[in-house]
Design a protein around this nucleic acid. Structure first.
Lengths: 101, 101
DNA sequence: GGGTAGATATCGGACAACCGATAGATAGAG
DNA sequence: CTCTATCTATCGGTTGTCCGATATCTACCC
């Protein structure tokens, strides 16, 4: 999908997760399972993490751990904020339901 | 993309637009241009409208007009509401920025 | 009617998100 | 050290979103 300018909403979502709290690939898969019912395949999540890291948006907290946690870099937090802004202007502000949870 | 259960976020977005107000294909293209900077191709929008109509979510107000407006059916409004709920649980509620516009 | 402008509709193809399977790495138990 | 469980990583292939080009239609003007 390329409805937004980000490559897929999944990257955006993952970056938001990590911006909020250090998480591993597994953490993210579980979080997504909770939120949408289905657990994304490893082949979905890890390429996304790799890509975000290559862009300099996230970095591993301890690269050699069994469960490698990531945290957002300064650039990543900035990106998350800007993307969220665009995202909101795309989906919201139509007298809609997004503002009363 | 199949991050949500609808076929792409674009369908979701279009259904939300039409649920809020009667709109033609051109109206929608212009609205998207305003919101995200780029105007989607006709080959993007019209198949989406067709699909939504086949699902019974929208219907033409005046099928023979030059600029054919669509409105949401009852089923469409229901679908829009439910999808929005799922959508919000996917993206929000993380102590995030969605609730202070 | 003929001609033009602007909208709708359809088709083939390109690109990338996503999955499933598989392989590699790490920590802990015994 | 070996075995096992769990997480990480990579690769090929599928699927479906989206675009560009093209064709069709309607309304309006002359």
């Amino acid at each position: 999908m390329t409805c937004c300018d980000m490559k897929g909403f999944l990257s955006f979502l993952v970056l938001r997760f990590i911006s909020h709290k250090e998480m591993s690939g597994e953490d993210i898969r579980k979080e997504l399972e909770k939120r949408k019912g289905t657990k994304p395949s490893p082949g979905t999540i890890y390429p996304v993490l790799k890509h975000l890291q290559e862009q300099g948006f996230i970095e591993p907290v301890d690269a050699k751990a069994k469960e490698k946690k990531y945290r957002a870099t300064a650039a990543g937090k900035k990106e998350a904020k800007e993307s969220t802004k665009k995202f909101i202007s795309l989906f919201c502000c139509m007298g809609d339901e997004f503002h009363h949870h």
